[in-house]
Design a protein around this nucleic acid. Structure first.
Length: 451
RNA sequence: GGCCAGGUGGCAGAGUGGUUAUGCAGCGGAUUGCAAAUCCGUGUACGUCGGUUCAAUUCCGGCCCUGGCCUCCA
């Protein structure tokens, strides 16, 4: 397949270094509050990528970290008077619950920073020893000018970065662009003993250390939100490359676009944050997931009041085609080639979804049992790759539960219909409609669904 | 200011140097007691001004506009 590599700025044919162990590392959340819809996008996008890659490379090792030591977590913990682990555990659990609702499969590894402090310290020691980092006033800093390729990933000129640095330059920095690998903790702050005193890791070093510990010096794919390109990933790349004797850190860099509202990035100061847990009260997780796959992953995705209802209607149509055909063994048929082609072209989910709607139309028209079984299997298999359409259609339409009251009313309506008492039949139908129940007469009899 | 994306029909959203994206909404028809669902048909869509070309929404250049990164950030 082809993937857009941020490092080169173009689509490249994806070829793993080792097909029997394909490695992917995605930057996960800092768990200091509930996840918002923007946090869900990379989780869903890279979940789809993992599903697709596994078809070709069953030995994919997918790692998505949780950052559980960070100043925002410290702040939240201090405000509540609890240990940082309490905050981290609470929001990590909430994150998992939200992602499960979205049908996101767990990654193979989900490392936490606090479990990798020794790896982090060891990597910093290596960087100090080989001249890429230095200790100063309890801090350890990466010396940016020591890495000639710095800025290549984010296409920035390091000289301009240094000259135009907006942030106040700490006096202990050798060069303005130098960034922190390790910083000292006050007695109240969480910290670990290190060769440089009691302290805690800087933000960027964690991913370098954990990726190396779990996946190796060179990984195939590194993903995350677009805003991580600089400085986070640029710094990771510098650290890892310099700690590993110049070996390539990540071979393909993938970055997803942001979820926006009114074409503007969500931000706390603007107050336009959409929490996943709130959205999940408005619509099934599957609808949220489909909404996130509606646009190509690198494009911005503008979220408004119609996004979820629209996604829901799309699922109504797809599940509608799967009704009445009965359960079908998924291995009986695979998604059609155009579907795979779409995903193989830099994960073009909108084009892949278009193929699914075409399958749905064919399925609606299919007359023979063979055609129905084949198309159902194809549609289900396509859905499996996107993490959609895996539940019973009746469950999707909310009609999987026996409901005596509704059944009684439908029976009464049918009796009225048979007696050609259409006024009474329509009255009953309107009554149900007011309860949010839509009647559908079909060849298989009368069925209902929740509007 | 530097760098990077993007401007497609009523809305969402792919894509392409000459031929149908797809979904929703609308309109017409079929089916239906009426509906719903489904099927069929239906839209002078490609920011703007130039250039290249037999032919550009698609390539090139200018301009306008929008968003992102440059500070924590998915």
């Amino acid at each position: 397949m082809y993937l857009h590599n941020t490092a080169s700025g173009r689509k490249e044919f994806f070829e793993p270094e080792n097909p029997t162990r394909v490695t992917m590392y995605v930057c996960g959340p800092t768990v200091y509050s509930y996840a918002h819809i923007g946090n869900a996008r990379p989780a869903v996008v890279f979940d789809v990528l993992a599903r697709v890659l596994r078809r070709v490379y069953p030995k994919l090792v997918y790692t998505r970290n949780i950052t559980d030591i960070d100043d925002k977590i410290n702040k939240a913990a201090a405000a509540e008077g609890v240990a940082i682990g309490v905050i981290a555990d609470r929001y990590a659990a909430a994150y998992h619950a939200d992602l499960e609702a979205l049908g996101v499969l767990p990654p193979d590894f989900e490392p936490r920073v606090t479990q990798h402090i020794p790896h982090i310290i060891a990597m910093i020691e290596t960087l100090v020893a080989n001249g890429h980092a230095y200790a100063a006033e309890g801090h350890v800093l990466f010396n940016v000018p020591s890495y000639a390729d710095y800025g290549q990933l984010s296409k920035r000129d390091p000289r301009e970065l240094l000259a135009g640095a907006r942030v106040e330059v700490a006096p202990y920095k050798k060069d303005a662009g130098d960034f922190v690998l390790w910083k000292p903790s006050t007695p109240e702050q969480p910290g670990w003993d290190s060769p440089w005193g009691r302290g805690r890791p800087g933000w960027h070093i964690e991913c370098s250390a954990m990726a190396a510990a779990l996946l190796g010096d060179t990984i195939d794919i590194h993903g995350g939100g677009h805003d991580l390109v600089f400085p986070h990933h640029e710094n990771e790349r510098a650290q890892s490359t310099c700690a590993h004797g110049g070996k390539t850190f990540a071979r393909y860099w993938l970055h997803n676009g942001h979820v926006t509202m009114q074409h503007t990035k969500m931000s706390k100061s603007v107050g336009n944050i959409l929490l996943l847990r709130n959205l999940l009260q408005q619509a099934p997780g599957e609808a949220v997931r489909l909404a996130l796959l509606t646009a190509h992953y690198r494009q911005p995705l503008d979220w408004d009041d119609d996004t979820l209802p629209e996604a829901r209607r799309k699922l109504d149509r797809l599940y509608g085609a799967l009704r009445d055909v009965g359960p079908v063994d998924r291995v009986a048929g695979e998604a059609p080639q155009p579907f795979f082609d779409a995903l193989a072209d830099d994960l073009n989910t909108p084009a892949a979804l278009a193929v699914m709607f075409e399958l749905a139309r064919e399925l609606n028209k299919a007359e023979t049992a063979d055609d129905k079984a084949r198309l159902t299997a194809q549609l289900r298999d396509a859905g499996a790759l996107l993490g959609l359409l895996q539940q019973d259609p009746a469950a999707w339409f909310g009609a999987n539960h026996e409901d005596a009251e509704i059944d009684t009313l439908i029976a009464a309506r049918n009796a009225a219909k048979n007696a050609k008492n259409y006024a009474e039949a329509d009255r009953i139908r309107d009554t149900l409609k007011q309860q949010g129940i839509v009647i559908e007469d079909s060849a298989q009899g009368t069925r209902w669904r929740r509007a």
